[in-house]
């Protein structure tokens, strides 16, 4: 099937290129702050990829939850640990580990690409109805069909809060 250079495809190309490069950057940078910054950019470009999939509510949630909260926490912890000693986050190279990692990663990529992604090569028709990613649609589904998973997720978050407070506080 010939792929035509539509504006959508060009936008996707730019965003996907950014996401892929920053994903590599997360692993490649030795400095943890730079890794975290790459991950921020990655999540930001993913949010725009969600917009291209018309999931605007989830794109916004992605920015609020990931770039706005989770990555800020990461940076906070990195800096807090850096306060003690500057060398604490330095890494020594380990060639065996690297070789094994790349081997395993390449095998995983090849296997999944040929076995899982390949059947979908021809698919480019979008079936989802208009406005399926709007706040109204998502909210209605979340509070009707998925209300029990939603409640369980809230309990999970509560447990997370209690657990992290217990971990962080020296004296209750």
């Amino acid at each position: 099937m010939p792929v035509q250079a539509t504006p959508d495809l060009m936008i996707f190309g730019v965003l996907a290129g950014l996401a892929a490069m920053t994903a590599v950057g997360v692993v490649a940078f030795r400095n943890a702050v730079r890794s975290a910054l790459c991950l921020v950019l990655n999540f930001f470009s993913l949010a725009f990829l969600y917009f291209t999939l018309q999931a605007e509510l989830l794109g916004m949630t992605q920015i609020i939850v990931y770039t706005g909260a989770i990555m800020v926490l990461f940076l906070f912890v990195i800096m807090l640990l850096n306060l003690g000693s500057l060398q604490v986050l330095d890494e020594r190279p380990d060639l065996i580990k690297k070789g094994l990692g790349f081997l395993f990663g390449g095998a995983l990529f090849g296997l999944t690409a040929t076995q899982v992604v390949q059947p979908f090569l021809q698919t480019s028709q979008q079936f989802a109805p208009e406005g399926f990613g709007s706040p109204q649609a998502v909210g209605r589904t979340l509070f009707t069909s998925y209300v029990w998973p939603f409640e369980i997720a809230s309990i999970l978050l509560l447990i997370g809060i209690v657990g992290s407070i217990l971990l962080a506080k020296r004296r209750i």
Binding site: L49, V116, Q126
Partner: peptide, 16 residues
């Protein structure tokens, strides 16, 4: 039809 095949998204996801 937007011209972006599904495999493009899947490939990006797999790569990441």
């Amino acid at each position: 039809e937007t011209g972006v095949p599904l495999a493009a998204y899947l490939g990006l996801g797999l790569f990441m």
